[in-house]
Design a binder for these strands. Sequence first.
RNA 1: GGAGAGGUGGCAGAGUGGUCGAAUGUGCCCGACUCGAAAUCGGGUGUGCCGCAAGGUACCGGGGGUUCGAAUCCCUCCCUCUCCGCCA
Length: 421
Amino acid sequence: MIDISHIRQDVSVLKRAIARKKFESDLDSIVELDRARRDCIAKAEKARGGQKSTNEEMSKLKKGSPEFLEKVADMKQVAAQVKELESLAKEADDRFKEAFLTVPNMPHESVPDGNSENDNQTVSTWGEVEGDYPHATPHYDIPWFEKMIDFPRGVKVVGAGFPFYLGEMSQLVRALINFFLEEGGKNGYREVHSPIVVNAASAMATGQLPDKEGQMYVDSNEGVYLIPTAEVPVTNFFRDEILPSEDLPVKRVAYTPCFRREAGSWGKDVRGLNRLHQFDKVELVKWVHPDHRFEELDSLRADAEGLLQKLELPYRVLLICSGDIGFPHSKQFDLEVWAAGQKRWLEVSSCSNFTDFQARRANIRFRDSDGKPKPVHTLNGSALAIPRVLAAILENHLQEDGRVKIPECLRKWFPSDFIGP
RNA sequence: GGAGAGGUGGCAGAGUGGUCGAAUGUGCCCGACUCGAAAUCGGGUGUGCCGCAAGGUACCGGGGGUUCGAAUCCCUCCCUCUCCGCCA
């Protein structure tokens, strides 16, 4: 959630910001709900204060004395009144909070205007995009692909979108995971091995609930959700905590499987590894001092970009426009790898700054130099999503002999220079 | 899953229906003493909400109830621990 002062001061600023995001939010009525709530709270607290001071007097009287009994009789009415006012205040408070939760984060001023993904800005590209890939083939059309990644048996065992990776392909997946984790460590991120289910409070704190409930697999017996990204459990690590400011920035890297129902998005362009219900991903998460939020976003992005460079995969960096940016995001860069066989860009990372939006929901604070707790700023980014990176490796590094060359940086964990028939 | 015990401030740990935001210890911060440190002594030390402020109000696991008044009594949910069962 945003800072409440944004709706108490000049709402027009907030209105304009939200309009840029193409989100609907009835701010006028939320302002009114806030006013009503404060009014009710003031009344209830005043009544309660009166009741308390009388009760204090009563505690000094002899129990059962005439004065005491008289006051009891008087206070019965007061008590009923207080109860009524308090319940009105709670109602008003709940109404406000519910509405306030629907207000998205404001996009940063450096975020370009736009309506959809078509308006995202390419800020840079790396590597040879239109370059020389004479043998490039869509990964799912590589002859031996199905021998190494078994979709039909995944369908039999679970359903669509849950492939088995076999033999050397499984080793390659593992090599990528190791590479990403190790690079994260080198860049100062502490490795975490995290739960892959979370409770509703956690999903609420990072913003998956209530918006994206339909996108998550849920176990309603236990009231837990399979995580769509490690962002959820890892960010919630510090929920309801106050961090010492000298600990900032805190940086963590985690590998987890991710689970997404992808409800409604199944259909075209989802062949092979392009879109799965379960996939592996290494995620970077940072908790930072507000003063450093944007330099931290740049360095986070650089950390993710470094991986693609070492993998020798061409990519572009998109600055996501206001209309395509997510609900809790302030600013977002996507990294898209060039898949030379499909001749298309595949998103392999999304690096985002949430400013204090998640931190307020999750109640994660730091103690500022004035001694007061303030919300931290949270950032995260994939580094990287494995199946699409794998797809790009298979397509771009495919050679004339039908084998795929393994990038140098993975050889430490992979037993051969090539993968293939 | 069964039986029992318990959830109080950073931690430990008292708490009679009213004088309890809560004793005490410990930790932490400031000061005194000291060449410095330890020890000792003195002072300070939670968070949210409402309020321009003074101040008020809430919070003793969550929610509800009884009562003029609840950390304290009742209901309910959650969690932790011990023992048993099952099991990686």
